[in-house]
Write a protein that binds this DNA or RNA. Structure first.
Lengths: 229, 229
DNA sequence: CCAAAAGTGTTGGTCTTACACCCATGC
DNA sequence: GCATGGGTGTAAGACCAACACTTTTGG
């Protein structure tokens, strides 16, 4: 890195990097895992798409900053949230040095109210497995987030945060197949998932155009580590 | 948090937190997993023990800062290094706001030259499973690091970074038993580890007071993901 | 010849995977 | 009555855990 860059880039922060969070917010829609992108309004990446994020407030923890970002963009305040990784190469943002703590968030598809505010030039859901090239180092962030959710789906119960309170086993299986991108044997899936004892069977049934399916709910809607698949 | 605190605490950074790395450096000694502690010299935690760390330089990546810290303290420049987690609660350091990116490092016991420099009031190895209370939020960092290395030992080959170039299967098994804190069946261990094909058997033998043992070496000394146990 | 670590296979149990038919409902 | 998803059991193979005796060396 040339000395001139260094002087320009840090003059506004006295040599201290700024600290930001960036959040990969996933939800389910149209039988696919979707993630939220915003269009950058200013700076060298203006016009490009990126994950939403922003500077961490002076009195805010990192988790709070991430949660606030999820809330401001989607209106969801109780989703699953997990720190992913911290990116800090000096040149990752050409404008000023920014160390970015990335987060993975899962929000239930119901009750989302998208809001770009004035901060961004646009906002949209995009299929997580077909993202366009993104600003900053967000391509890397997106790959990491996808790897993490796929892996974590298999040994935790976090899928609860993508589902409504009541669901059928078929719906649950569909969520797994959607995210993992492979099909699962129905009988084995039911055996396994019921053996875990994380679900309680409800009285009621879902009536559709076919045979009614028994409804289930998670007995505990908190993150737990357990072999799901 | 009171407003007075806030003004005092951020006056020196204009509202921007400082960014530091803290490194949990592990090695093996006296048949136990040891980690490196330094004695804090200044500030509210002066006199207490903590993991070594420091501010990230203006032109340094986070990884570079962590690696530099490992090198400055131990003289080892080629160990295993992995980012752990980023801690950023506003109150974690009462003096100024510091966001700390924690790292896990593994260094081979051979060739270590401890160096507290003038930065610290002391430096020592302590058993990783018997740490005293530490400064800042480093108790939490230590617990996380221990969990991570134990878990990662089982599905990666990173143990190579704690071993010399040549070793016997007995020595390798001892490393696993030491870190995981449980004993392993010798026959099963050998079967499994050899089946992975990560080791090459050397011509030479280690001669001791007993039957000579065949020496082995890792065929690739780079981090790989693979089920070890 | 004794102590100490090295080396070596088999078996039973458990877990995982693959697989096919009938059921209940809405239209 | 037919189309659609719901519901169920079994058998074969893979994997894992438990287990004991012989070998080689140094002292």
């Amino acid at each position: 890195m040339r000395q001139g860059d260094s002087l320009r880039r840090f003059s506004d922060t006295q040599g201290h990097p700024r600290v930001a969070v960036d959040v990969v917010i996933y939800t389910l829609d149209r039988r696919a895992l979707q993630c939220l992108l915003v269009r950058v309004k200013e700076g060298p990446f203006a016009g490009e798409w990126a994950f939403p994020g922003g500077l961490v407030g002076a009195e805010e923890s990192l988790d709070q900053a991430a949660q606030r970002e999820v809330y401001e963009r989607t209106g969801i305040g109780n989703g699953y949230l997990e720190q992913l990784y911290t990116f800090g190469k000096p040149e990752r943002d050409p404008a000023t040095r920014v160390v970015s703590v990335s987060y993975l968030a899962l929000v239930s598809p119901h009750g989302i109210r998208l809001n770009p505010a004035s901060k961004y030039a646009g906002i949209q859901w995009r299929r997580a497995d077909r993202l366009p090239g993104l600003a900053y180092d967000h391509d890397q962030v997106g790959r990491l987030a996808l790897k993490r959710i796929r892996s974590k789906l298999q040994y935790t119960n976090i899928v609860y945060s993508l589902l409504p309170a009541e669901f059928t086993l078929g719906e649950l299986q569909e969520v797994y197949e959607t995210i993992l991108h492979r099909s699962l044997d129905r009988r084995n899936f039911r055996k396994k998932i019921l053996a875990l004892g994380l679900l309680k069977q409800l009285r009621s049934k879902r009536r559709g155009t076919h045979r009614p399916a028994s409804l289930y709910a998670f007995s505990r809607r908190q993150p737990m580590i357990i072999e799901m698949l």
